[in-house]
Design a protein around this nucleic acid. Sequence first.
DNA 1: TTGCTCCTCACGTCACGTGAGGTGGC
DNA 2: TTGCTCCTCACGTCACGTGAGGTGGC
Lengths: 281, 281
Amino acid sequence: MAEMFTVGEFSRLTHLTVKALHHYHEAGVLPPARVDAATGYRWYSPDQLADAQLVRRLRQVRMPLTEVRAVLAAPDRAGREAGISTHLARLRLELAGTAAAVASLQALLTAAPEPAPITYRLAPEQHCLTFAADVERHAVGAWCAEAFPRLLAAAGRSGSTPEGPGGALYGEGWFELGGGEVTAYLPVHPDDPAAQPSHEPAAGVVATTLLAGPTAVIMHEGSFSDLDRSYAALGRHVVERDLGTRGPIREIYLVTPADSADPADLRTEVCWPITHLPKES
Amino acid sequence: MAEMFTVGEFSRLTHLTVKALHHYHEAGVLPPARVDAATGYRWYSPDQLADAQLVRRLRQVRMPLTEVRAVLAAPDRAGREAGISTHLARLRLELAGTAAAVASLQALLTAAPEPAPITYRLAPEQHCLTFAADVERHAVGAWCAEAFPRLLAAAGRSGSTPEGPGGALYGEGWFELGGGEVTAYLPVHPDDPAAQPSHEPAAGVVATTLLAGPTAVIMHEGSFSDLDRSYAALGRHVVERDLGTRGPIREIYLVTPADSADPADLRTEVCWPITHLPKES
DNA sequence: TTGCTCCTCACGTCACGTGAGGTGGC
DNA sequence: TTGCTCCTCACGTCACGTGAGGTGGC
């Protein structure tokens, strides 16, 4: 019979703390091969060393315990590796986000925030293909990277051509709550087959008409990480003139990460709903 | 008088959630410019937009709130930037650690773990300069990167020459608890001035004699992130033969990150204390 | 008056860490 | 018998998120 290890021994052998091993037991991630019914002592088998080494590495790359458990429970090697590579892709996104945040921080410290000019515009009524979902703040970038190709593909399959740049509507309370409904849209000509209300050009893609309305607009140049600076300038302008009203905020993506790899090239219009178009002063 | 913003407005202007703003208020990180005594309403001033933008970026690069508060409270620009660059240095270490963990994970999945041979050795009595501290697990690498230059400098100032590679003793319970006392040491000749017990060659550096004792030894080749694999092989060997005994585990750093930038070049001996030297079979 | 926004508890989340107080085997 | 290791609660940490239940101004 193979030797068994106590928690203390298993801890030294795996570089996992005793407390972590207790926690992994309770969470069902790495239950001991045997638990003494009388004393409650945990006994780990040599076979569990390989699993422990995997758990330690997965935790070091910040995989949540529920997913670690799923990876260990996977019936075959392919299942394991699928779970792992999904997570590593997410990790890469996270690291890219951190790099962008560092750049954004350094820009804030060195470059003086130059406020862009604010204009007023009556957003026109627009026939669109839309795709909506509940999206959390940190996931917006990835979500858009999926939504717009889907809208473009849907338009293409219906023989429609987009009539302008895509955009998105951020429902009320979206920023206050850190997430909520986002509607990505792509303008199409009203006569286009895809624009008929009865037509659903692809799963989840819906043809609608966005209503017209007065907005205050700012052009944001640069990384999405710095959007808050343009929002501050725009929102402050609107609030201080008491022009604010209910309704979603709209972003229009003029130059996107799909168009240019350099964040400095990005162009995003932010449109804030207002009560009326004031006389330009 | 400048306009003031409600939490909801300030949230949209800064892209911080209302709940986060509440939390930053309670934590003293970003208290509203004014709090209505009667209603408890929070009122934020336009001046606070800049602070909010900084807070958001610092949190995105994972600076703890207590440090964010200290940065905002810093009296001058230099104080702010010192706190920030200290944190960014830590962040770079963290990212390097994550990269190492990814490599270690991929190595575990692709390369078959080849167990290195285990040998027995009577660790000799050794005159040493030592430097000890309480170190947490994740901070060991950075701590060693400071400790050994300090030991080398202390030896140099006393006119001593190291008599072999440096090493470290990990006190009992170190792995089980995830930290504790670590003693970095550098062997010197007993006649060296630095080796005299009365002599303290530098702040915190102490001359001592490490006692002799039987050990089981394995040579670990490669990244420190993979040390657990060698510990598993070595500890399993010791436990299964019932050779285990109390006492610190010793690591000897034969090829260190200071010697080679390629992790594959690293060489570390791990010495596990045992009761006696068994006859080699 | 109805909505809307704001408020304050109180508790939940995630992955453990930190004691307190007590038991079993050499 | 003394140490040592192991055990189980119960609570703490960090940075918020999630409701519940209630108030003030248009």
